[in-house]
Amino acid sequence: MAKHDYEMTWKDLQIGCIVTEPGSASQYKTGDWKSQHPVWNKERCIKCGMCYLFCPEPCIGQDAEGYFEANLFYCKGCGICAKECPTTAIHMVEEEG
């Protein structure tokens, strides 16, 4: 995206507000909506993947060791992963500032 939304003038908009770049929604940072983010306790995590399944974004993936983590660029901080985790390995931490 050449310009951010807030920089675009009415003359910059494509005809019909058509988005001509496929997959450009992936550049949209939904991560700045959140007021809290999930933190995993690897000692309690059994790698069951319930957080991965329930994440509505879906922004949770596995690391090299098979543990799960959230991509905070997209994570909206909804807390569903923490709520659904069967071993309470995830807790939500308030954003700072």
């Binding site: 009415w10 507000c17 929604a25």
Partner: peptide, 22 residues
């Protein structure tokens, strides 16, 4: 591929209306 009918949040809606009117 293109996206038609994408939503325009407050930061873009005014610009979209101005463009349409002109």
């Amino acid at each position: 591929p293109v996206t038609m009918g994408a939503f325009a949040p407050p930061v873009l809606y005014t610009e979209s209306k101005k463009a349409l009117e002109v």
